[in-house]
Simulated assay, not measured.
Amino acid sequence: MNAKRVSAVAGVIYAAQKVRSTATGIATALEAAGLLQSPESAAELVVLRGQGARLEQHLDTAIAGFNASAMRIAELEAQHAAVLALHRKHTDSEHCHADDETWPCNTRTALGRPAPEPSSPWERAVAGLNALVDADVIFHVEPDGHISAPFSDEHIEWDLKAKRWVLTHDGDDDSYEAAADRYLATPYTDDNPRPIPDTEHLAVVAARWNSLYPVGTPVTAYPGCRPEDDPKDERLVTRTRSAASVLGGHTAVVWVEGHGACIKLTHVDARPGGAA
Score class of each variant (00 low, 15 high):
residue 267 H to V: 07
residue 179 A to N: 02
residue 124 R to Y: 08
residue 15 A to V: 04
residue 237 V to G: 01
residue 274 G to D: 14
residue 109 T to S: 11
residue 114 P to F: 07
residue 211 S to A: 15
residue 156 I to N: 01
residue 70 A to H: 04
residue 180 A to N: 02
residue 195 P to I: 00
residue 121 P to R: 04
residue 11 G to L: 09
residue 44 E to N: 12
residue 41 S to M: 11
residue 73 I to N: 11
residue 82 A to G: 12
residue 10 A to M: 14
residue 218 P to F: 11
residue 97 H to Q: 14
residue 188 Y to C: 01
residue 48 L to G: 06
residue 37 Q to K: 13
residue 273 G to M: 08
residue 256 V to F: 00
residue 206 A to V: 05
residue 267 H to P: 04
residue 33 A to L: 12
residue 268 V to G: 01
residue 240 T to L: 05
residue 242 S to A: 14
residue 64 A to L: 10
residue 220 T to L: 07
residue 250 H to K: 13
residue 73 I to C: 06
residue 270 A to E: 10
residue 65 G to I: 01
residue 16 A to W: 11
residue 178 A to M: 06
residue 267 H to W: 06
residue 55 L to P: 01
residue 35 L to E: 08
residue 154 E to Y: 07
residue 39 P to M: 10
residue 222 Y to S: 03
residue 18 K to M: 13
residue 102 T to H: 08
residue 250 H to I: 09
residue 228 E to S: 02
residue 165 W to A: 03
residue 12 V to I: 15
residue 192 N to T: 08
residue 53 A to E: 12
residue 144 D to N: 15
residue 57 Q to T: 07
residue 45 L to K: 14
residue 220 T to S: 06
residue 177 E to T: 10
residue 54 R to C: 02
residue 4 K to C: 03
residue 219 V to K: 06
residue 74 A to V: 09
residue 93 S to Q: 06
residue 146 H to K: 04
residue 116 P to T: 15
residue 82 A to C: 04
residue 105 C to V: 05
residue 103 W to A: 11
residue 267 H to A: 02
residue 139 F to Y: 15
residue 10 A to F: 09
residue 124 R to T: 11
residue 165 W to L: 03
residue 65 G to S: 13
residue 46 V to I: 08
residue 148 S to V: 07
residue 136 D to P: 06
residue 208 R to M: 10
residue 63 I to D: 12
residue 13 I to D: 01
residue 262 C to Y: 15
residue 197 P to D: 04
